[in-house]
Design a protein around this nucleic acid. Structure first.
Length: 506
RNA sequence: GGCCCGUUCGUCUAGGGGUUAGGACGUUAGAUUUUCAUUCUAGAAACAGGGGUUCGAUUCCCCUACGGGCUACCA
């Protein structure tokens, strides 16, 4: 590491929902910045006006916010390198592109998209580069006066980098080590588009320089274009200020192979977005991790361990632990398949780990959305503590806790009916009678009287405990049945026994 | 096709010239829980192949295979 201040950027394109891979790139940037006391910058790369999606930028910020990945500088919290949207920086880039043309490292190209498509179709391995550029319409092949004329007439044109012949471009990637490319294999990428907007290649170099970025993390899919960026840093005379690169391993599809894409979510019925994403054009909503019932702590924890580990075998990390333990050397080189089952496990672990209070607001909303009225937060909290060990997703709190708020609508009759007898009816009537005399139900006391009574009636405790559970809960699940009765209270418990007795005896 | 990157249980991974190749998820069996879940115990499960280098390679080198990425006036 050099001694300059650590400044990293996450630079998404606002073209839709942010998926897993993007969030992980943001997370690694953030962890690295915070570990070294540096700045984490959010820069919006909206240079492609055709792909711009309304609402995507706000979504990205909500997403980072939910994850606890808070930028030090962003479009809405600008620092001294504003603006942070490339569309608003449009006027900056042309100057650098022109400078490269002046220096002979770039040139104007007038070819139309149709002409290029034709070439690509007809010439195998066609590349706009040293082999073919003399035969194309550009300021290298055309006579000077014609170029001047074309420019004077405002003929649509782009500026392309002139990749040199017979050179080897190499650099040391923080994750992969030495990586080399032959310039003969690299094509003359467009730097400035006909609409005056820069392409990613120009913008990323200019902005990383201007914003004093010290370390650049991005997905491995960018590796092939690294030589273009390296050359640009050189030609622009900024070589000494170039950030150190780190190309992150890709996140792969859970099944089969390939890079995880947004479509995989719908195809496999799993979330790939952090937050729900509403597509305005199709009117469809794609459910994200939050909507599905994930805690951000679990989501972040899961993402961090996809391609990174601390070497100790520890699986559960808080954000602070991640920050202090994160290190680039421990990022793996190979892509990692997205394993949704493991993500669920992380969530279950986090639900068990956090205090009920942390869960309260989310659980309350889930229950209320299902039509349950919550009058007492203390009661809710007790319920949460009682059932949270059996929830994997936050949404599991509904089936696991609803019976604490309303009596069962249905009973698992198969579990009681076949073995139901008049003796059992008598037993429960006696239970009611006895409970009417107590001030309030206390779990241990109830358990004692319940068992004593069963013995007295010649019944096995187990034979009446299950029916009792079905009466209160509706099914064969939930915490200790006497705890449930105690929490439900005397009136409610007696009421539910009576109600169930009618059904059981029918 | 060309270029670049990669390859340890099904999955995420630790390890690294001499190890019974370790952990986690999932899975199987058992214990606990008079329900379910939790928890606990145990089990099955991996170094892609071939050449080197070496006394000795899973580990280092080369080749092959396989996988992935890129190959737009998209990022």
């Amino acid at each position: 590491m050099s001694d300059k201040k650590v400044r990293v950027r996450f630079a998404p394109s606002p073209t839709g929902g942010l998926h897993l891979g993007g969030v992980r790139t943001a997370l690694f940037n953030y962890l690295f910045a915070k570990k070294y006391g540096g700045d984490f910058i959010l820069r919006i790369e909206d240079t492609d006006q055709n792909r711009y999606v309304e609402g995507a930028e706000a979504y990205i910020m909500d997403c980072l916010n939910w994850c606890g990945i808070i930028p030090d500088e962003s479009p809405v919290t600008p620092g001294k390198y504003a603006p942070y949207r490339q569309s608003e920086r449009k006027s900056i880039y042309r100057e650098y592109a022109e400078r490269l043309v002046m220096q002979g490292h770039a040139y104007y190209a007038f070819d139309t998209a149709e002409e290029l498509d034709k070439n690509r179709k007809e010439i195998p391995n066609f590349q706009y580069g040293q082999v073919y550029r003399d035969g194309l319409r550009n300021s290298l092949s055309l006579p000077q006066h014609e170029v001047d004329q074309l420019l004077a007439n405002n003929t649509p044109h782009v500026i392309r980098i002139k990749i040199p012949a017979d050179e080897t471009v190499s650099f040391t990637d923080m994750i992969r080590g030495r990586v080399s490319f032959e310039t003969n294999q690299v094509d003359d990428k467009v730097l400035l588009k006909a609409d005056g907007m820069p392409t990613y290649h120009l913008a990323v170099v200019v902005d990383d320089y201007l914003m004093k970025i010290s370390h650049a993390f991005r997905g491995e899919e960018w590796l092939p274009s690294a030589p273009v960026h390296l050359l640009l840093w050189n030609y622009l005379g900024w070589k000494a200020d170039m950030p150190q690169w780190a190309h992150l391993p890709l996140i792969l599809k859970p099944d089969g192979h390939g890079k995880l894409s947004k479509r995989d979510g719908a195809r496999l019925g799993i979330p790939v977005y952090a937050l729900d994403w509403e597509d305005e054009q199709s009117g469809t909503t794609t459910q994200g991790f939050r909507g599905m019932g994930f805690l951000p702590e679990a989501f972040v924890n899961f993402l961090a361990t996809l391609g990174w580990n601390d070497g100790s075998g520890q699986e559960i990390f808080t954000m602070d632990e991640l920050i202090s333990k994160f290190s680039i050397e421990r990022i793996s080189k190979a892509g990692a398949k997205f394993d949704f089952e493991k993500a669920r496990w992380y969530n279950a672990e986090w639900i068990k780990k956090v205090k009920g209070e942390r869960l309260k607001a989310a659980v309350k909303k889930i229950l209320e959305d299902k039509g349950i009225t919550i009058k007492n937060d203390t009661y809710l909290l007790t319920v949460i503590e009682l059932v949270k060990d059996r929830c994997t997703l936050l949404s599991d709190f509904y089936p696991q806790a609803c019976y604490f708020f309303e009596s069962p609508k249905e009973y698992d009759l198969n579990a009681v009916k076949p073995k139901w007898t008049e003796e059992k009816t008598a037993f429960f009537n006696k239970v009611i009678e006895l409970q009417k005399t107590v001030e309030q139900i206390e779990a241990v006391e109830l358990e004692n009287t319940f068992k004593a009574l069963a013995e007295e009636k010649g019944l096995k405790a187990g034979d009446v405990m299950l029916p009792f559970r079905i009466m209160l809960v509706g099914g064969k699940f939930g915490p200790h049945v006497f705890d449930i009765a105690a929490l439900l209270g005397k009136e409610e418990t007696i009421g539910r026994i009576n109600k169930a007795l009618v059904v059981f005896n029918n």
